[in-house]
């Protein structure tokens, strides 16, 4: 058994069996992360570069930790402070790094499709750690994995994705992943932040947050991505919070108990209030914990795949 793909560019290209294999492997890594020595020597002959053209806290630390716990050598690269500011192109930067014998590239870039472009030009295995507004596959995987852990299965579960769907790569990866695993998905938010043809992906659309919350088993609340919005899409943060924010009072008014998720970083008091984020509904920190196991599984399976070819 092995993955059907050489790179992890998006969930869109994965088969359901690939996702299940990643989850099964992640179960083993979760066990390793509970040992006194949380480390295995499997990838000790592998060098991985973390190529980050955009800011990141969780994803970057999580990938680096996953790499180190697999025994790989890691190099960290961030665009700021590098020769990118002198005008070096993406391919040149990547080729120069790879000529120092690097086996895998973990990449984040503000342009959608950047990792796909690089995959066509270089030899190493590429893992997309977020490209523009396209996909963030490991986040999609760890979100689905966390729901599976909490609710046992994804099949037939109702998941609402709330907030800034338009600019969110997390939303797209989540939709692909959840649909492939048999869940029902609703997206909800202000009309200006929901892409026009999103229903073609087989999701329900509503502009009423409360309706979505009443319908769902799990609500994944997304961050308002102010840095990607170059025109006003809602009047003010206060108004957004009032009409589309999730807080404890709103959760308590529902007929049932639902699970709250957020990919981080949270704009506390905007899309999610502190009393809801820190309540027992929330599995936000489990998501972060599972992120390391999921990324270890992806790295392990792709590193093995590379050698098979």
């Amino acid at each position: 058994m092995s993955l059907s793909t050489k790179h992890l560019l998006g969930i869109k290209d994965l088969k359901t069996s690939d996702i299940e294999l990643i989850f099964k492997t992640a179960d083993n890594f979760k066990e390793i992360l509970k040992r006194p020595i949380k480390k295995v020597p499997t990838l000790r002959d592998t060098t991985i570069v973390n190529l980050f053209y955009e800011n990141s806290t969780r994803t970057r630390i999580s990938f680096e930790l996953a790499e180190k716990r697999l025994g790989a050598d890691t190099i960290n690269f961030s665009a700021s402070g590098s020769s990118v500011s002198k005008g070096e192109t993406l391919i040149d930067t990547a080729k120069n790094i790879l000529s120092m014998k690097v086996d895998m590239v973990v990449m984040r870039h503000s342009a959608s499709g950047a990792p796909h472009f690089l995959a066509n030009h270089i030899d190493a295995a590429i893992i997309n750690a977020g490209d523009g507004t396209n996909e963030h596959p490991t986040q999609g995987l760890l979100d689905a994995y966390s729901i599976r852990e909490k609710h046992g299965t994804l099949r037939g579960k109702k998941i609402a994705i709330l907030g800034d769907i338009m600019h969110s790569r997390v939303a797209l990866s989540n939709i692909y992943c959840l649909k492939k695993l048999g869940a029902e998905v609703t997206v909800a938010g202000p009309p200006t932040l929901i892409p026009k043809h999103i229903d073609s992906l087989g999701v329900h659309v509503t502009y009423d947050i409360k309706e979505a919350l009443n319908w769902c088993d799990v609500a994944n609340i997304l961050r308002i991505q102010l840095e990607r919005q170059n025109m006003p899409l809602f009047s003010s943060l206060r108004e957004y919070s009032l009409f589309y924010g999730v807080n404890k009072q709103l959760l308590d008014s529902l007929q049932k108990e639902i699970t709250i998720m957020h990919p981080g970083p949270i704009n506390r008091g905007v899309e999610l209030s502190s009393d809801a984020a820190d309540s027992h509904h929330s599995i936000i920190l489990n998501q972060v914990e599972n992120g390391v196991a999921i990324r270890m599984a992806v790295l392990y399976l792709l590193a093995g795949k590379k050698e098979l070819e």
């Binding site: 066990e31 002959d45 392990y300 093995g304 098979l308």
Partner: peptide, 22 residues
């Protein structure tokens, strides 16, 4: 004990799916 992650033949043409360690 599963020993998959400690084998010396990873990357030697083997893609191995681990068993449970408990």
């Amino acid at each position: 004990l599963d020993i998959t992650f400690y084998r010396d033949d990873f990357n030697k043409g083997n893609q191995l799916i681990p068993d449970q360690t408990d």
